[in-house]
Structure formats: structure tokens, C-alpha cells
């Protein structure tokens, strides 16, 4: 390789870097430039008084409040459902599974992590319809079905972050409690898990971000364009990402489109904040949670 080739390589890398950064800035800039006007209380609460809306005294129309609450409930329910299962599986993988079992379990979790989200949504939808036809007329695509489906989607994140943080603990941390006569379970529950809390936490934050962001799963499992606040977990609901998708194709006036831009900015801020937070908590774990192989 001659001098010219070397220069070309470096020039190419600079062009790539600058291209990517400008594309990202262009996308985010476009959103902010077009949508910043929309960011105000009216965007969220419409014509309703914020206090009335927050105390659930009044429904909000033409505002993002129901969608934001829907997303919030979705996140709480899904992560709430996924966390215990994910933690236990992560602990099992890191502390108990060995040899062939470990290989097989790992393989299946890799598949679960790679299944496209729409396939998980489709399964949730079919299960809901199946249950409706054969068991209870009360079951149909709803907040609960969405949360269950989303919890499968984020399960791998929680499993991996737990597993990786446990595995990366130094040997002397692992052995101290055992040397003092603690049992294996005590060691896990009182030493190892607390020691890897920050890693587990960042996995949970990533899971929250994924729940807030996902559109494909929820559009099959119960999100609708107009719902108001859900009255129960068995009711359909609204959510921010679906609202953005819906507005992008259904907007009927420039004002309505503007609310789509506003919603995009809000969702972007929520996801970026969560992501930054997860990063600050534990940088290395995130990387391995995404790409554990």
C-alpha cells in the first residue's frame, strides 16, 4: 500500500464519519426545527386544564396526554412482568447453567433477541384472539396483551445484562461469602446481585427505552388511534410511538402534523434521556447486552 492509498483510506474514513454525523444532526435538526413550536402545554393537554387531566377528572382531547400515559403504563407493566423472569433467568445462566445446558439456553435467548418484534406482536395478537374464541369473551387485544408481548421483547435485555454483570464480578468477590460459610443462594442474593446492581439497573433502563420506543408489537396487540385513558388493563389504549406513526399517514391539517413533530420530539427526549442514563450507570454492560454472543 502506497502513500496515496493510505491518504485515501483516511480521507474515506473522515468522509464516512462526517456523513453519518451530519445525517443524524440533519434528522434531529429537522425534527426540532419543525416541531419546537409545537412544544407547549396545549400539545400535551389540549383544551383541558392540566390539573384536571392529571387528577383524571377530565379526559384530554387533541392532546398527547392519553398517549403519554399509555406509554407510561405500558412501560411499567412490561418491565414489571419481564424483570423477575429476566433476573431469575440471568442468575441461572450466570451461576448455575453449565456445559451443554448453558450452550442451549444461550442459543435460545439469542433467538429470542433476534426474532423481529412484529413476529412477537403477531403471536400476542393470535394468542389474544385464540383466548377470546375459546376461553373468555373478555379477552381481546388490550393493554395487558401488549405488555405481555413487550415483556418477551425486552426479556433478552434483562437476562443478558444480569448475566453479564454477574459474570464480570471478580473472583474474590465471589468467594468471600462462601469462605465465611454462606450458602450459594445467600452468596447470590446478598453479595453477587447487590454487587452487580448497577449493571442490572442499566439493563432495566434499556428495557424501559425499548418498551417506550417499540411500535410494531403494540400496533398488533391493542393500541388504537383514539382511546382516551385506559380504564383497565383489559382496554385498548393510546401510545406515543403509534401516535407518531398514525399522524405521519393520517394527518388532516398542518396543525395535526405539527403535533406529530411535537410527539416525535417528546419521544426522542424520553428515549435519549433513558439511554444516557443507562450509559452513565454502566457503560460496558450495555455493549454486551446488545451483542452478547
Amino acid at each position: 500500500m502506497n502513500r496515496l492509498g493510505e491518504k485515501l483510506l483516511i480521507a474515506f474514513s473522515w468522509i464516512s464519519g462526517i456523513t453519518l454525523v451530519s445525517v443524524v444532526f440533519f434528522i434531529v435538526g429537522h425534527l426540532i426545527f419543525k416541531g419546537i413550536r409545537a412544544i407547549n402545554l396545549k400539545l400535551i393537554f389540549g383544551e383541558t386544564r392540566p390539573l384536571d387531566a392529571l387528577l383524571l377528572r377530565k379526559q384530554v382531547f387533541h392532546g398527547l396526554f392519553p398517549a403519554m400515559m399509555g406509554t407510561f403504563l405500558l412501560v411499567v407493566l412490561s418491565v414489571g412482568l419481564a424483570a423477575p423472569v429476566g433476573l431469575a433467568s440471568g442468575i441461572y445462566l450466570a451461576e448455575y447453567a453449565q456445559g451443554k445446558v448453558r450452550k442451549i439456553v444461550n442459543f435460545f435467548f439469542d433467538i429470542l433477541a433476534t426474532i423481529p418484534s412484529i413476529v412477537i406482536g403477531l403471536t400476542g395478537f393470535s394468542v389474544a384472539v385464540f383466548l377470546h374464541q375459546h376461553y373468555s369473551k373478555q379477552i381481546y387485544p388490550c393493554l395487558l396483551i401488549s405488555s405481555l408481548s413487550l415483556s418477551f421483547l425486552v426479556l433478552p435485555y434483562i437476562i443478558r445484562s444480569t448475566q453479564v454483570s454477574l459474570e464480570s464480578l471478580p473472583l474474590n468477590t465471589r468467594l468471600t461469602a462462601l469462605a465465611l460459610g454462606g450458602t450459594r443462594v445467600q452468596n447470590i442474593l446478598y453479595v453477587l446481585v447487590p454487587q452487580s446492581l448497577s449493571g442490572i439497573l442499566s439493563g432495566l433502563i434499556l428495557a424501559i427505552g425499548r418498551c417506550a420506543e417499540d411500535t410494531a408489537v403494540i400496533m398488533l396487540t391493542g393500541v388504537v388511534a383514539t382511546a382516551g385513558l385506559p380504564r383497565s388493563v383489559l382496554a385498548p389504549y393510546e401510545a406515543l410511538p403509534f401516535y407518531i406513526y398514525y399522524i405521519s399517514s393520517e394527518y388532516s391539517s398542518p396543525e395535526e402534523l405539527l403535533t406529530g413533530y411535537g410527539a416525535s420530539i417528546i419521544l426522542l427526549i424520553i428515549c435519549m434521556t433513558l439511554f444516557l442514563f443507562a450509559f452513565i450507570v454502566k457503560r460496558r454492560i450495555i455493549w454486551q447486552t446488545f451483542y452478547h454472543l
Binding site: 434528522i27 425534527l31 417506550a212 410511538p241 406513526y245 405521519s248 416525535s264 428515549c271
Partner: peptide, 13 residues
């Protein structure tokens, strides 16, 4: 940071 940008936003833009 890009890994945290929601897909629907790419679609919208």
C-alpha cells in the same frame, strides 16, 4: 446515542 433513537422517528422524518 443513535442506538437509542426510536425507529418510528426515522420513519417519520
Amino acid at each position: 446515542l443513535m442506538t437509542g433513537i426510536p425507529t418510528v422517528i426515522y420513519g417519520f422524518v
